[in-house]
């Protein structure tokens, strides 16, 4: 088990080095940083001095190593746009996005998994077929349409939900949370629903397909022959065998959700990383963009590693296979 974890971690580090290399390349290909930083009045001397102080005269490898070492310590440089620490900028926005994504993920699991089991075991009944049909609608609706519709119905027409923003937030150290205030929680509802709708339908359809597959297997029939009650077979014996792909997809999708959050954040004016990134793109704010790239990749890699380790926890066959 320990060997397995160490292997996964080494793997993760390798991936991060490659990502950092790509993020570093953005600096090199997206024009001369010196040109982007200086104004028209500066002399060649100023430029040379700036070039020297930025370390741009060093070799490519030296610069890459320096970038990696700095990035590993959380130092992504200074925003071109407003001269603030990039890490600080992101840290400020990070909690908003993560809270949104986490709530959406929990929502999609809490609703998607039971619905999937239900539609699998009541296959052919009208309520199961209706859910199945609605899930196709859910999969095909783009999230910005869902967001706008939700705003139209609940904020504009009914007027019971805020249309934008995060409500009041409470600071817990560097983490600002909207979960502890009433207005913060209310503000989270619509964006979380619009972000999770697609995930709910995806998880529901995945669980349904897996359940139907597993329920046909011999060990389920044998469990029935042992006299295990039906509900226990469905929710214990069968569901556990379905969890592997669900965990993979959920974890992969946390990454995808952060990406989708870009759209949801724009629709709901949610002050998260997605909004920050869009602003960075419009201003060609390269340090912010490359930091965003690194951090998102970092989240992906961490999730992947956690998924691999969770696999081994769920499936005893993988624990020994990796020795």
């Amino acid at each position: 088990m320990l060997v397995f974890i160490i292997k996964r971690l080494l793997n993760a580090v390798m991936v991060m080095l490659v990502v950092a290399f790509l993020a570093f390349l953005i600096f090199r290909v997206a024009g001369d940083p010196v040109e982007l930083m200086v104004n028209e009045m500066s002399t060649q001397d100023d430029r040379d001095r700036l070039r020297e102080s930025l370390g741009l005269n060093d070799s490519f490898i030296t610069q890459y190593v320096r970038f990696v070492v700095n990035a590993a310590q959380g130092n992504f440089g200074i925003s071109f746009r407003n001269g603030q620490e990039v890490l600080g900028l992101i840290a400020e926005r990070f909690p908003a996005t993560m809270e949104l994504v986490l709530v959406a993920t929990i929502l999609s699991l809490l609703i998607g998994v039971p619905l999937g089991v239900l539609t699998a075991i009541h296959r052919g009944r009208w309520h199961s077929e209706t859910l199945q049909f609605l899930s196709i609608v859910g999969v095909s609706l783009p999230s910005f349409v869902v967001g706008i519709l939700l705003i139209l119905v609940f904020s504009v027409t009914l007027g019971i939900m805020p249309a934008f923003g995060r409500g009041e937030v409470v600071q817990l150290g560097w983490w600002s949370t909207g979960l502890l205030t009433h207005s913060g929680r209310i503000a989270l509802v619509l964006p979380a629903i619009s972000l999770s709708l697609y995930q709910i339908t995806l998880i529901m359809r995945l669980v349904r397909a897996e359940m139907m597959e597993v329920m046909r297997s011999d060990f389920i029939k044998f469990a029935r022959a042992r006299g295990v009650p039906r509900w226990r077979i469905q929710f214990r014996h069968a569901l556990k065998n379905c969890l592997m792909p669900v965990i993979t997809m959920t974890a992969m999708n946390v990454g995808a959700l952060i990406a989708f959050a870009l759209i949801t954040e724009t629709v709901f004016q949610w002050p998260g990383m997605g909004m920050l990134f869009i602003q960075a793109v419009t201003f060609i704010d390269i340090p912010v963009m490359s930091a965003y790239l690194c951090i998102i990749s970092f989240i992906f890699v961490v999730l992947n590693t956690i998924v691999d380790i969770t696999y081994a926890l769920i499936d005893p066959r993988l624990r020994n296979a990796t020795r």
């Binding site: 297997s217 011999d218 060990f219 029939k221 044998f222 469990a223 556990k240 065998n241 499936d315």
Partner: peptide, 16 residues
């Protein structure tokens, strides 16, 4: 009590 044909598939792989 029941005994099935294939012992490889009649036990749930995820439980001891």
């Amino acid at each position: 009590g029941a005994i099935f044909q294939d012992p490889l598939t009649s036990l749930n792989p995820l439980f001891s």
